[in-house]
Amino acid sequence: MAEIVDARGLSCPEPVLLTLEAIKRLDKGEIEILVDTDTSKENVSRAASSMGWSIEDISTEGTGYRIKIKKE
């Protein structure tokens, strides 16, 4: 099961901070991050990529996005 980070409604840079915390905690595997602005979507994706995680999928969910990231 993927770890879920709910960053909806949080202002910059908290979505990225929470994502990086989860990345540090898990080291590898799958994480799903929920965000509700395009800015957060871009920031989280950029941060995950820079940590060597791949963006598996970005789907819209409600008025926001669900970002799936993965590292083998």
Partner: peptide, 19 residues
């Protein structure tokens, strides 16, 4: 572009992110 002068320094300090 989400241009932000504060975020520029913050991301550099906090995440070493230069975007």
């Amino acid at each position: 572009s989400r241009f932000c002068t504060m975020g520029a320094f913050r991301d550099l300090i906090l995440f070493k992110q230069g975007h």
